[in-house]
Amino acid sequence: MAHVLVFAESRGGAPRKVALETMTAARTLADAAGGEVHAILAGPPGIGAHAASLGEYGADRVLLIEHEALSRYDAESLTATVAARAGDGAYRAVVCTASAQGRDLAPRVAAALGAPIASDVVSVELDGDVLRVRHPAYTGKLVATLAVRGSPVVVSVRPNAFSAHAAPKAGTVEALALAADPGASRAKVVEMVEGARDRLDLADAPVVVSGGRGLRAPENFALLEELAAAFGGTAAVGATRAVTDDGWRPHSDQIGQTGRLVSPDLYIAIGISGAIQHVAGMRTSRTIVAINKDKDAPIFKIADYGIVGDALEVVPALTSEIRSARGTG
């Protein structure tokens, strides 16, 4: 009853960084339950080459599923497989990532198991029969402490809430068969629309450079791309809804209540007023910098460091200063 099953999310034939963070949460639970972490790694043939990294981050066993059809996410066959494994009586909890994929998979698995779910949690603690989690509710305006009873329970872990820790375990690789034929899945991914390949995802980026309407024109986002580049591959570019609504940036770059939630080490808000719906998506960032020409802009209330000024003048100066500070110029 005491093991923890993790779904280690992958894309493009390799585990995502968030999968390793999720391992940290799973390890916490397994250690408290006195059990092992079993990580499911599912993907196209060849993904097994990455199994060792899961062992390094705390998997006692890696349950490997290699199948041609899994070069894309296949919700139905994976639900059946994770639920079949999780329901065999050996597991106290099933842990997924609260990403686009994990938010899709975790509730299906929970319903298939008849298990309760705690979604999008930022902490986990096992206390006897109770799994206690903290979950940002009301779009992050409140934090709920939830008690979840029953076994197994399903948990999805918010990206960036846990850090990936090396915690070497055996990582013994075992093949796991799909419990359902992906060919029989009714809903199927028929096409992947890839974002720019070399771009770091917003959720994975330690630095987020984000722009609002104060940038005045879509072409001025080039200044933000340059600033992001000065961080040497550790920064991603985000935007406000004002900007994505006008089509200056894709909707997938929108940060806020109805967009992405990010929690980087450094968030640089440029020409952003700081509307509460935007702040809901970034207020848990470790350090916030704001550049705005209006000294009364609400963003300055939550920015650790603010500069009052014209973005078009301040950003290039910041880019060159970051370049020399990091030796990337």
Partner: peptide, 8 residues
Amino acid sequence: LEGAAEMV
């Protein structure tokens, strides 16, 4: 998705 999209 994060940094991509899929058609289903």
